[in-house]
Design a protein around this nucleic acid. Structure first.
Lengths: 224, 224
DNA sequence: CCGAGCTTGTGCACGCGTTCTCAAAGTGTG
DNA sequence: CACACTTTGAGAACGCGTGCACAAGCTCGG
């Protein structure tokens, strides 16, 4: 527990740390020993002042006149984000999206291992997706506890979302990534992030319409 | 061009309009003629003051002492979001995620119709997904123009993202929903929203870690 | 027609995040 | 060693979004 981790890190900064991490991973492969905030900003698609302020929340890991040591910074960010650990993940709702997420290779590489697939449809239970068999939702509690799942991915229809979220929380899950197009509440002490594809398209549509009729009003990336 | 459309609507408000829309659609089915900001706030998972302020940007569509007319409000929001129009959409990158998005029913219902599927893999070209055949990326420009596509969904690997984005923009696309885990820039006048699943998990991991090691993060400041 | 009871619309204060700016602190060269 | 150059770290100003609080405006009952 360093001095840096005692500082409160703004949510907007937390949301950008993964960007820096990814950018650094890419330069790391190119054997660059050190990187300036300006270069990192370019790679991450943000501005340099923001990079410096963000990184300063982690501690003073840079050297004036030189920049940041790539390896060291990578290590600090991954420690801060908990990427040094292995997080077992459960996906609930094995429809189109759930199946795609189960097969998605981008998760495992960064320490998120999908270990459990759950669905309510009896016809799907026992069916294999990749190396995993789909488990019945009746066994949710048991299998989530068994695998010490802390992070759950919710990919059910909207109608089932709140019920499943409640069950996940009851089983000890404290972080939920929610793809269901529904408002869904969780108790204090549980994190939930929402990804709603229809909403994203509707936001694009709004600006698209404005552009078509009158002047431009471009949106930017969201923080959360 | 109404009075409402002349006001600049804050980005945060635009992002919430789809929530209100969805909430209203659900109450609309229940034949409720009017709804209060408090009730709508509850359904949308936000607070009432925010609802009122957001809706006030669209114009004064409420009646004091009564609330908002559900049908009228629905109409105004959908007009503002461009949901009264039909938006043809192209998906580029028909891997796990692209295929799932192609089959996703949630889009079509709200005016977003997936009309074009594009991939670079020759083995995939011609293959049917649902009712659509996959088109070669060589024909991107032609097919995008043919269908008057304004909104593109990018579901390619990271390495191809920037190139595909450039091609989409060149073909006349002015809104891009980007699922590729890569920083990707578009010219002025083009909107791009990013959805990065790995980043979302990493953000959850950050807070998960904080919860696991200690309780609340103790705020301690160091003077420099 | 009046007064009680709701509910909207908005002025205002506050806090968070972004960006500008510049002193501090490092490197390298002659 | 001194000086020019580079880059970080943080103070300060600013803008945006949030939420409180309340006046304005509507309905309804008597």
């Amino acid at each position: 527990m360093t001095a840096a981790s005692r500082r409160r890190i703004p949510e907007a900064t937390v949301a950008r740390l993964p960007l820096y991490y990814r950018a650094l991973m890419e330069t790391g492969e190119r054997q660059v020993a050190t990187i300036s905030s300006e270069r990192l900003a370019e790679l991450a698609g943000v501005n340099a002042a923001k990079v410096r302020k963000d990184l300063s929340y982690l501690g003073s890991y840079g050297t004036r006149g030189v920049g940041y040591d790539v390896e060291y910074l990578l290590h600090e960010i991954s420690r801060e984000l908990g990427l040094t650990r292995d997080w077992p993940v459960a996906i609930v709702g094995i429809g189109n999206l759930g199946r795609a997420l189960a097969n998605y290779r981008g998760f495992g590489a960064r320490g998120f291992r999908v270990e459990v697939l759950i669905d309510a449809d009896p016809a799907l239970v026992g069916h294999r997706i990749g190396e995993l068999a789909v488990v019945s939702i009746d066994d949710l509690d048991e299998v989530v506890r068994e695998h010490s799942i802390a992070i759950g991915i919710l990919a059910t229809p909207a109608s089932a979302a709140q019920d499943v979220a409640d069950r996940l929380v009851a089983a000890g899950v404290t972080s939920i990534l929610n793809f269901a197009p529904a408002v869904c509440s969780v108790p204090e002490g549980v994190s939930m992030r929402k990804v709603d594809l229809a909403i994203e398209l509707q936001i694009l549509s709004f600006y698209q319409l404005r552009r078509a009729t009158s002047g431009a009003t471009p949106p930017r990336e969201r923080a959360g």
